[in-house]
Design a protein around this nucleic acid. Structure first.
Lengths: 336, 336
DNA sequence: CTGTTAGCGCGTTCAG
DNA sequence: CTGAACGCGCTAACAG
C-alpha cells in the first residue's frame, strides 16, 4: 500500500540501513549511493512513516500547543507565529484547545495524553490547576509558557503589571482621577496572572498618584466584547461614573466603546478608554492601547523550544520579558 | 522511562494481549481480569504509545487541518469548531498553515507530508494548485473541503453566489444603482471560489436589475482591513463614486467604513456598506452583512470526516450547503 | 563505506 | 477466556 524503506532498499540494491542514512543526510555514505538512493526514493514517492521512526527514535518531531481559545486575537496571532516558526524547522503542531475555567471538567486536560505524542509543549496562558501543572512537569519535556511565568519552565511574556501601570499612568497624566478597571473573572483558577497583574498595575499607579479607587469601579469583563459592554454599562449606572476606563484587553475596550456610544456618551469627551493589545482593529476604533508584541512572543517561545529540542540547555529556565508600548490614539483625552 | 503495556501485563500477571483487549473494551475478557487490569493500568499511569499503536494498526487518530490563516475570523472560528468536534471523538488535530498565493513557494505544500501522519484531512478554503489537489487525492484518505467544493471529495460550504446576490439585491432594493464591489485578488490560483462566486452573485443581481456596472467600481481588497480601506479610497477617488459598496468580507467592509470616516463621508447617508460573515465585531460597526454559519460549517465538516472514519460511506461525496442570512444593520440605507 | 541484527511498543492472529 | 508469537517500518549498534 504505502512505499516502505525496504521497497527503496530493494530497488536500489542496498540495505535499509543505508537508505535511512542516505536519506537523512548522515555521514558514511558515498556520494554516488546517496544520489542514487535519493533519486529512487523520489521516483517511488517514498515517505518515511512517522510512526515507525517515532517508535524507533523516541522523538516525534511534533510540538503540542495548548490554548484556551483559537478565535481570540491574542491566541490566534500567537498560534500562527508558533506554527510558522516550528514548521520552518520541520516540526508539526498538535493543537489542544482547552476551554478555560468552569466550562472545563476537572481533569479534562490530562497532560498524560501528550506523553508519547509530542517532544515539547507550548502553553498559551491557560489557567491550569496545580495537578495539571504537575502532570505537565511530569512529562519531563521542554515546556514554554506564553503569557505567564511558571517556575521550573521557560516562559515568554510581557510585564503585565507594567501594562496596567502604563495604561493607568497615561490616564492620570491626562488629569483623570476617577479611573475604572474592566478586568477578567476573579474566580478564574490560579496561574492565569495577566488579568491579575494588569489590575495590580492599575492599583499601583493609582496608589502612587494618591488616588483611592472606588471599589465599584473595579468590574469584570471576562475578556470578551460582550463582557466589556456590560461592564461599561454597569459603570455608567454608578451614581458617579468614572471619567476614564482601563480595559484589560482591546476586545473588552471595544465593548466598552460600544456601550458608551449606545449611552450617547462621547469619547474621550465624557469618558476616556484605553485597552491592551493593539488588536488589528484597534486603530479602526481609534483606541488608545498598550501594545504587546504577540507574534514576537510566539516566535520566541518556539525558538526556546527549538533550542531545547536541539539539546541546548542554555535557556532551560529562561524567562523572557518582551517590551510593551503605549499607543496613543483618539479614545483618551483630558477629562471634561 | 515510560510505562509500557508489558509493565502492566507483568504486574497484573497476564499477557500483553489480554491487557490490550481489556483496556480497549474488546470482548473475550472476564469482568474480573478487566477490572484488575484497568485498575493497575491506572495506578501505574499507563498511557499507550500512539506511535506504536499507529504502527500496528495503521491508524493515527489524527486529522490534518490545512488552512491559509489562523488569525482571520473565518479560519479561527472554523478551526475552533473542527478541533472541538474532533477532540470530542478522541481525534487529535494537526495544524498545517499554508499561506495563500504568491507568498507560497510552489510545492511548499506537499500533501505527501500528510501520508502516514493523519487519517483524514480537512481543507479550509485554501487555494491549491492542481498538483497539490491531485496529491491530496492520491492519499486516498477522507477529505473534506470547507468553503469551496472540489469534485471527488466531501465539502461543506455556503452558496457564495447567493451571498453576493443577496447583498447586492439588498442594496438595489434600497434604491442604489451605482454599486461597487470589493473582492479578493483576481490573480489568486484556482480553487478558491468564494471570492469569485460572490462577485458573480453581485454581477448577476446587477444584471437582473438591468444595471450595467462600471468596471472601475469592481476593485480588489485582498480580504484584509487594509485592503478594504485602500479599495474604498480608490472608489472615492472616482469621478462618480458609488453610492453603495458590497465588500466580500466583513473585514474588508471594516476597512471601507474606516476610509469613509476618514474621508468625512457619512454611512449610510453618502455611502451604504454591506459585508459578508457577520464577524463578531460587525455589530459594533453597525455593519449590515450576509451572515454565514462558520461554526456549523466546521462542525459539519468534522462530522463528515468522523462518519467516513467510522467506515460509513453514506456521505462519501456529500456536498453540504449551509444557509446564509441577511442581517440588516445601520450601514445600509437608501441613497441620498 | 555498507550490511546484519535487534529492538522501539503495540495489535493481532492462532493455539490452547 | 487467555497466552505465545509475529509483524508494523524504521533506527541504532555492531560487524565487516
Amino acid at each position: 500500500m504505502n512505499i516502505t524503506i525496504e521497497d527503496v532498499a530493494r530497488t536500489a540494491g542496498v540495505s535499509t540501513a543505508t537508505v535511512s542514512r542516505a536519506l537523512r543526510g548522515l555521514p558514511h555514505v558515498s556520494a554516488a549511493t546517496r544520489a542514487s538512493i535519493t533519486r529512487i526514493a523520489l521516483d517511488l514517492g517514498y515517505v518515511p512513516s512517522k510512526s515507525a521512526s517515532n517508535l524507533a527514535t523516541g522523538r516525534t518531531r511534533t510540538v503540542g500547543v495548548v490554548t484556551p481559545h483559537i478565535a481570540k486575537w491574542f491566541f490566534a496571532q500567537a498560534i500562527e507565529a508558533v506554527e510558522q516558526e516550528l514548521r520552518a524547522e520541520g516540526y508539526d503542531v498538535l493543537l489542544m484547545v482547552l476551554p478555560p475555567g468552569p466550562g472545563r471538567q476537572p481533569g479534562a486536560f490530562d497532560p498524560e495524553g501528550l506523553r508519547q505524542r509530542v517532544d515539547a509543549v507550548c502553553v498559551l496562558t491557560v489557567p491550569l490547576t496545580g495537578t495539571e501543572l504537575d502532570g505537565l512537569r511530569g512529562l519531563s519535556l521542554p515546556i514554554v509558557f506564553v503569557g505567564g511565568a511558571v517556575s521550573g519552565a521557560m516562559s515568554v511574556r510581557i510585564d503585565d503589571v507594567e501594562v496596567g501601570r502604563t495604561a493607568c499612568e497615561h490616564l492620570i497624566t491626562l488629569g483623570h482621577r476617577r479611573i475604572a478597571h474592566i478586568g477578567g473573572d476573579p474566580c478564574e483558577p490560579l496561574n492565569f496572572t495577566a488579568p491579575v497583574d494588569r489590575r495590580a498595575g492599575w492599583l499601583s499607579a493609582l496608589r502612587v498618584a494618591g488616588i483611592h479607587p472606588d471599589p465599584r469601579t473595579d468590574v469584570v469583563g471576562y475578556f470578551t466584547v460582550e463582557g466589556g459592554r456590560a461592564a461599561m454599562q454597569a459603570l455608567l449606572a454608578l451614581p458617579e461614573p468614572p471619567t476614564a476606563v482601563f480595559a484589560g484587553s482591546d476586545e473588552m475596550a471595544f465593548g466598552a466603546l460600544d456601550a458608551l456610544r449606545d449611552a450617547g456618551r462621547s469619547v474621550p469627551g465624557d469618558v476616556s478608554v484605553i485597552g491592551v493589545d493593539d488588536h488589528d482593529l484597534a486603530a479602526l476604533f481609534d483606541l488608545t492601547t498598550v501594545a504587546q508584541p504577540v507574534e514576537d512572543q510566539g516566535r520566541s517561545a518556539a525558538d526556546l523550544l527549538l533550542a531545547a529540542l536541539r539539546g541546548d540547555p542554555t535557556h532551560a529556565q529562561e524567562h523572557k520579558l518582551l517590551p510593551v508600548a503605549l499607543v496613543v490614539r483618539g479614545s483618551t483625552g483630558p477629562p471634561a
